[in-house]
Design a binder for these strands. Structure first.
Lengths: 152, 152
DNA sequence: AGTCAATCTTGATTCATTCAAGAGAATCGG
DNA sequence: CCGATTCTCTTGAATGAATCAAGATTGACT
């Protein structure tokens, strides 16, 4: 429902425009979508929209805290709507799929650096790497599938 | 001391060429150097060397486990010579400086995800973000940081 | 030395992202 | 409701990292 998204924009003191609502919907509909997928989804809904607009919107939404940007190496930027909680990501080495991973229960061990070299650390992001179920079984018998889209 | 680096290459079954020795030296001399810096260092030592050669060499060295590639968001790829131990990195939000951070607890505590969604996780990389000492003091008196809450 | 395969050079290309300038639209005070 | 203001979108071009392709060199082994 777009009414929710409109309200989210207003509450974040952002102007409500159709590209913004569409981008927000796209990120909610397909978590971990990369920029190209988002542009595609927005254009499916609204017709032609400039990629520049999508980039601007994503930046504004990220700055407002409505979406979160993750940048896995070897993949374009991806966005997700889960914000404000402490969760990380696992990225498939083979196909690039991304899934959410809640932080290991307990004391968040890795967030306590032993020697911070004087850095004022305020955030830590953990990226797990491995094989997704599909690629793991595929690798067991033949060549793994080539890189494709993110899938929850 | 190029003799050591030559030996490292031979022990990894890699051909010993001047570009390779120079790249290996550069990575050892300047930890966390980005690709452009490495190209610069190599050219300072050898004269003109194609960037393609440096890319190829870095890939070969990474595959052989002689160097490690880290890819902080918003920065080109960086390389370091510390391999085989479990350590992570802290990246300055302001200037992009990178420093090593030893994992606080035990050997590989970060590999314990609470729910792996069936992924076969074999590695975890932790990226801490914050301000380096220089940028922290600079931000203290001039432009104050506009950062949001520190969500771990 | 001679041979072969790995490596480097040259040059072009892809891709994600950003920059710049102007047209257009959302919000707010009247 | 309406105009003014400011933010947002469109258009078009540019940047920068990294990759691809083809041919020339060169290291390693016999």
């Amino acid at each position: 429902m777009t009414a929710d998204h409109e309200r989210m924009l207003r509450e974040a003191s952002l102007r409500v425009t159709r590209p913004r609502v569409a981008v927000l919907s796209a990120v909610h509909d397909e978590p971990h979508a990369d920029t190209a997928s988002i542009i595609g989804a927005v254009r499916t809904e609204l017709g032609e929209v400039s990629h520049q607009a999508v980039y601007d919107v994503l930046r504004a939404l990220t700055a407002a805290g409505l979406v979160r940007c993750i940048q896995p190496p070897g993949s374009p930027a991806r966005y997700e709507s889960r914000v404000g909680d402490n969760h990380h990501h696992v990225v498939c080495r083979s196909c690039g799929a991304v899934a959410d991973v809640d932080c290991a229960v307990g004391a968040t061990p890795c967030l306590t650096a032993s020697d911070s070299h004087g850095f004022a650390i305020d955030e830590a992001e953990v990226v797990y790497r491995g094989l997704c179920p599909a690629c793991a079984t595929a690798a067991g018998r033949s060549a793994p599938p080539s890189r494709k889209e993110s899938r929850v």
